[in-house]
């Protein structure tokens, strides 16, 4: 896992990502004004996850870094997901 971080991300890429993020923000606010019932939280979380992923991959250079970093991040998020899912094995099925 030697380091080959010679990749310098250009300003253009960053600005493009930023524009996408702003668009997604506008989207999530717009969607929130409709009543989608139980779906509104799902949509909001999906949009937020896409935004977070963009920030991590481009702004935080995960896309260009060594693979080990992507594995680490996956492990961390997976752990958090498991904590949440297992906790809800109690709450979702409670009488």
């Amino acid at each position: 896992m030697e380091h080959k971080n010679n990749h310098i991300v250009g300003y253009g890429t960053y600005i493009f990502v930023w524009l996408t993020l702003v668009t997604l923000t506008a989207l999530t606010v717009t969607v929130a004004s409709f009543d989608l019932g139980g779906f509104s939280i799902v949509v909001a979380l999906i949009i937020a996850s896409v935004k977070a992923l963009l920030v991590m991959l481009i702004f935080m250079h995960l896309k260009f870094d060594d693979k080990i970093f992507r594995i680490f991040v996956a492990v961390a998020f997976l752990t958090l997901m498991i904590f949440i899912v297992l906790t809800f094995s109690d709450y979702s099925f409670i009488r």
């Binding site: 999530t28 937020a48 935080m60």
Partner: peptide, 17 residues
């Protein structure tokens, strides 16, 4: 960026319900 990511989730969860 992490501080930003956390806010990305806080915003819809508190403001857009």
């Amino acid at each position: 960026h992490l501080v930003d990511i956390i806010w990305i989730f806080l915003f819809p969860l508190f403001y857009l319900i």
